[in-house]
Design a protein around this nucleic acid. Structure first.
Lengths: 198, 198
DNA sequence: GACATTCCGATGCGGCCGCATCGGAATGGA
DNA sequence: TCCATTCCGATGCGGCCGCATCGGAATGTC
């Protein structure tokens, strides 16, 4: 058995380079050459990892989707003190909205993929899967809050979760473009959650 | 004075071709050649109308922005019967959310420009202007509803308008990707407006 | 150290890109 | 009709694109 390589790791490093390039100058300026340079490997290595460019982009989306999903879950599970449902909800939504300056790059990449998914069914499928997971997470949080009596008993968790997820997505885009500031976006979320309280 | 041409009209026809191509296969596959073909003119004519490709895209965004803004206003002004503020609000939001199947192409184009604006300050400026106008429209509607007593007197119109605009944007994206159906999106909007009622 | 196998850097190919150029068609006034 | 002016279709240029190819470097086994 000669020369072996950790493809999984290299794939992720290449995905990182893809995201960096998207954040720097948009989806349409992502070329295999630039990705290879940015990742510090040769074009040949990139081609060995991914049969086509589309495959590479798909992997990059799966990678960033997973990262966002896991980060949202982590915000809940790593709460050292027992927190109120509304606090958990607020923290989770803030994480999903990607409005903080340090999340800007990730928000750009996410938006680029969402737009591209409109003309690529493969990408759209990955996004739907991610949205579904986030939806379930929010449904659970809302149900939990209702059970503890913090949130209004009237609310319909699935319907509210759809609204919340759409709201965070919209806020992400609007902060990105500069129509809202990170502060105003957080304020919108805070007000919304307050409106859900019993 | 020899040969004269209605540039404004041609510009708009070219912008239409740009939008059609974006809807068909995404922003990154918009080339001057394809645009010219789609618009039924030669590349030279396109180049005469727009000095660069970026200028052409900018104009296309301005065109579609104007169309969306005017359509939203038209939905209010053309109400033949005196309608309730909540009905007006609901109709306006439905128009802005671009969730109906016949709006799909427009939603795709809008999303593509939003994503591209993340790396193009010129485009972002146009989007901010459009968002500002839509925001003002919603503020007016909310204030009107509050004055007539239909909407809760507690609400803060500017803050609510920010939430509503973000919500419609998010719904547009999620319907586009297929995470929500047009029906569920309209349901989210209807529920939200109902929650604002006094 | 010889070898089998895996890996990949370098290179080439055909094609499309945005943009510049320019000769001639089109047009309206003198 | 003739001309001045506007317009633009055709063409070319340099460059980047995704992808295919292949000779040889790297590496673990015997």
């Amino acid at each position: 058995m000669p020369k072996q390589v950790d493809y999984e790791d290299r794939r992720r490093r290449i995905a990182g380079a893809v995201c960096l390039l998207i954040a720097r100058s948009g989806m349409e300026s992502v070329s295999l050459r630039d990705v290879a340079t940015e990742a510090g490997v040769s074009m040949g290595a990139v081609q060995r990892c991914f049969r086509t460019k589309d495959e590479m982009l798909l992997f990059a989306l799966e990678d960033i989707s997973q990262r966002i999903g896991e980060r949202a879950k982590a915000r809940i599970e790593t709460s050292d003190a027992p927190r109120s449902a509304t606090t958990l909800l607020d923290r989770t939504l803030s994480a999903l909205a990607l409005v903080d300056p340090e999340d800007r790059a990730e928000a750009q990449v996410w938006g680029a993929f969402v737009a591209h998914a409109a003309v690529s069914e493969h990408l759209a499928a990955v996004l739907r899967e991610t949205y579904a997971k986030l939806h379930d997470l929010l449904v659970w949080l809302l149900g939990y809050g209702r059970d503890t009596g913090e949130l209004s008993a009237i609310l319909d968790p699935p319907a509210e979760a759809r609204a919340l997820l759409a709201l965070t997505e919209g806020l992400t885009a609007q902060v990105l473009v500069g129509h809202q500031t990170p502060e105003s976006a957080r304020d919108v979320l805070e007000r919304y959650v307050r409106g859900l309280m019993a």
